[in-house]
């Protein structure tokens, strides 16, 4: 018992195939949370540098909205935000101890709803860019 073999991190991450609903929800929630934090800071940084004159602001916005890549990223942002909101509601219920047995179903529900909302919003987001 002098030494023992530690299987390390690599193996942990190799286990994603065996994750169940609750674990995926946790990972997605973390991921979307970090994306939103990142977005918030870029958002503030970009807009605050464009606040010199009204014209500069309009120019910046137009320049951004002209690019297809920005439109696509906006769809992605919506997906991330919607999932984070819905899963946040799910976690609220979990914290209140409501429907703990159905936690996997509510995770799938928030995934499906996210998908639906994102698909429905695509026409609005990409209109005029392509």
């Amino acid at each position: 018992m002098s030494q023992s073999y530690n299987r390390g991190l690599v193996e942990d991450f190799g286990r994603w195939r065996e994750f169940s609903a609750g674990m995926w929800a946790w990972i997605f929630h973390k991921f979307t949370g970090w994306v939103l934090v990142g977005y918030l800071f870029t958002h503030i940084a970009v807009l605050s540098t464009a606040l010199t004159t009204p014209q500069a602001y309009t120019d910046t916005i137009q320049m951004l909205e002209m690019q297809p890549i920005v439109r696509i990223l906006e769809v992605g942002l919506l997906a991330v935000a919607v999932f984070h909101i819905l899963n946040g509601l799910r976690l609220l219920l979990v914290d209140l101890g409501v429907g703990l047995e159905a936690q996997d179903k509510s995770f799938y529900a928030s995934l499906v709803l996210t998908g639906a909302i994102v698909v429905a919003s695509i026409p609005t987001f990409v209109a005029g860019a392509f």
Partner: peptide
């Protein structure tokens, strides 16, 4: 606890 539910599982 961050409610991953893996223990319950």
């Amino acid at each position: 606890c961050q409610t991953q539910f893996s223990c319950t599982e």
